[in-house]
Amino acid sequence: MSTTPNPPSDDGISAAIAAHRDEPGALLPILHDIQDRMGYVPAEAVPLIAAALNLSRAEVHGVITFYHHFRQHPGGRHTVHLCRAEACQARGAEALIAHAKAELGCDFHGTTADGTISLEPVFCLGHCASGPSMMIDEEPHAGVTSARFDALTRALRTDPRRHE
């Protein structure tokens, strides 16, 4: 599943708010829904959510920035999460991370120059007996070598659909 960044659309935001506003503790479900639809949580969403849930804008902003999962700006077409936790470290994650940054030409929280891939660190994907692990969007990969990393990410970057 790709997280295609669409231009901010009030429709997506309003639909997400309408779908969850009556749930108890609705804020996280709303934010997830917006990010699933749009690829990030645009600044325009904050006052709309605040008004719907009777919260201050500061409270909504505080929640968005507290959680690593929520993005405030559009990312690349795909997100690669590389595990940097202990079990993957024990199997060479740090060398893979260094290689990944060089291969993609960006640091953690950055995006490749062609806008295809955002690189994010993650603390554990639960494949701890088979590391180093990573996740491309929601697709898991374990036992990732540098060569495998290159093959997987180059396939994304030459995917003709990325210009759709």
């Binding site: 936790a85 202990e86 079990a87 993957c88 603390f123 554990c124 639960g126 494949h127 701890c128 007996a129």
Partner: peptide, 11 residues
């Protein structure tokens, strides 16, 4: 919220 590295039994 099985966040600890080295754990996967919950998953």
């Amino acid at each position: 919220d099985e966040g600890d590295s080295g754990t996967f039994s919950d998953r």
